[in-house]
């Protein structure tokens, strides 16, 4: 089945001041996406913006592909102007996916990063300790669904308008504290802004995956997977524009990623 297809926009609506939901009905058979995969969407039919834009799959149900997005630049602005009934060019599903957790797991979402993690939470219901951080209450999009799918939810906002005031990585750090010995070796899945992921890399560095859960008095054994975001031109591995620096050289976010083992990434 070809990964490039045309889709009919069935809905492109405002959820609130910040977020929009795009529903696409493919005009041909498609490959079923896995949690963590993404699609390249053409955002209009002019040459400006020229390139397709990458979006994580937020939901796939009843042969509809759903994407959650916020207007951040020319591409998303152009996308927001498309109407129900418009036809757009799509490529996907692309990239790798989150590996399936064996038991309970930890999910960390920063802002719209929740869009990429919700398919994982839906597939493994009530197995996630979800850490969800955003700037403020309004930006905690899909909070109700996220709460209902999680085993336990921890919320932080920058302004304290919902949950704890502070960084979500600080909440995680408390949770991973060796005194709460049952949680330390759960796999972690994260998606969010780069500063959050960078901070997360410092938190999990305390619990290196190379150590057994309890080794010479140190905690370890934590596997952490992060979904990265980069500007992309092709999305299929050809242009080498979206690379990220890893311990074994540059890797393509669109092809070897978007999900990487956090220990592989060289944070700059």
């Amino acid at each position: 089945m070809p990964k490039n297809f045309k889709a009919n926009i069935t809905e492109n609506i405002l959820l609130n001041e910040h977020f929009r939901l795009l529903n696409l009905s493919p005009l041909s058979d498609i490959i079923v996406p896995e949690p963590g995969q993404f699609y390249m969407l053409r955002t209009g039919d002019t040459y400006d913006p020229l390139l397709k834009r990458p979006f994580s799959i937020f939901r796939h149900e009843d042969n509809t592909l759903k994407f959650l997005y916020r207007i951040r630049g020319k591409g998303t602005l152009s996308l927001s102007n498309l109407k129900s009934g418009d036809i757009i060019d799509v490529i996907g599903p692309l990239g790798n996916s989150y590996s399936a957790p064996e038991g309970d797991f930890i999910a960390i979402a920063g802002g719209i990063g929740i869009a990429s993690l919700l398919p994982l939470l839906r597939r493994f219901k009530k197995r996630a300790y979800l850490f969800y951080g955003a700037r403020n209450k309004d930006e905690l999009i899909m909070l109700n669904e996220a709460r209902s799918l999680s085993k336990e939810i921890f919320i932080t906002t920058d302004d304290g308008s919902e949950g704890e005031k502070g960084l979500i990585t600080d909440s995680l750090s408390d949770f991973l504290n060796p005194s709460r010995i049952t949680h330390y070796a759960l796999p972690i899945y994260a998606c969010g802004p780069t500063p959050m992921l960078k901070e997360l890399s410092k938190v999990v560095a305390e619990y290196p995956s190379s150590l057994l859960p309890l080794n010479k008095g140190r905690m370890g054994g934590v596997k952490c997977y992060v979904s990265l975001e980069e500007h992309m031109a092709c999305g299929v591995g050809a242009c080498l524009g979206c690379v990220v620096k890893t311990v074994s050289g540059y890797k393509r976010v669109c092809k070897e990623g978007p999900v990487f083992d956090i220990e592989e990434i060289v944070w700059e």
């Binding site: 913006p49 020229l50 031109a233 524009g241």
Partner: peptide, 22 residues
């Protein structure tokens, strides 16, 4: 190994790339 990132940026009806011949 090519250039550091960012390597690409979209421009009006085009794009600028500095992949660095990776």
């Amino acid at each position: 190994q090519g250039n550091p990132t960012p390597r690409i940026v979209e421009t009006p009806a085009g794009m600028l790339n500095a992949i660095g011949l990776q």
